[in-house]
């Protein structure tokens, strides 16, 4: 390879890298202070959940559903007690909510919008008003969260998930089956 061709290759790679960085910044930018703040709040929640789970037997596969439900119920009770003053916005602060609305808007750009709308329509949308510390009712389906939305939101640690209930984006602790926080009217 001549020096000139090597120079051209490096130049092309540099352009691709800069382009990719700019594109990535349009989506979730993990270096953004707002996303960092969100990650810290989520991390704090997970640390609290882990500390509250101490003393409870570690959940493991069992043929007795009562054992699973007991663990879930006890953990949820402890979380509710520890977070009894936590209100809406404890994790989704106004700044974080604003950034999430921007990311949700980006997820619905172009062709994705129609796909997401169809997917939401076809996954048995639930009409349900939830509040922080509520349990997600076991007899109501969990609407699937469109993959394109999940691709555009900050990653969550295992056990936490984004769910859509009515038009709200809900942060749900799946282990304890409890609503950690939510953004109302986040999804059309």
């Amino acid at each position: 390879m001549t020096l000139q061709r090597l120079y051209k290759l490096v130049k092309t790679l540099a352009v691709i890298l800069v382009g990719w960085t700019l594109f990535a910044q349009d989506r979730v930018n993990p270096d953004s202070l707002i996303v960092q703040d969100f990650a810290k709040r989520v991390n704090d929640y997970m640390n609290l959940q882990k500390s509250l789970a101490k003393g409870l037997p570690a959940p493991k596969p069992t043929p007795d559903p009562q054992i699973i439900l007991d663990h879930q119920g006890k953990l949820a009770h402890r979380i509710r007690e520890a977070r009894r003053h936590a209100g809406q916005g404890a994790i989704f602060t106004p700044e974080i909510s604003k950034e999430f609305r921007r990311l949700l808007g980006l997820a619905r750009e172009g062709q994705n919008d129609a796909h997401i709308k169809k997917s939401l329509e076809r996954s048995e949308p639930v009409r349900l008003t939830l509040h922080v510390n509520d349990a997600y009712p076991s007899d109501i389906p969990l609407q699937s969260t469109p993959p394109t939305i999940l691709m555009n939101l900050p990653a969550l640690p295992p056990g936490l998930e984004y769910r859509i209930a009515s038009h709200a984006l809900v942060l749900r602790d799946a282990t304890a089956n409890i609503v950690v926080d939510l953004i109302p009217n986040a999804v059309p």
Binding site: P59, T62, P63, P65, I68, Q143, S144, N177
Partner: peptide, 12 residues
């Protein structure tokens, strides 16, 4: 969509 996460630990 009608299943909840407790089923993940249901051994059967």
């Amino acid at each position: 969509n009608h299943d909840h996460t407790e089923e993940l630990l249901y051994k059967p």
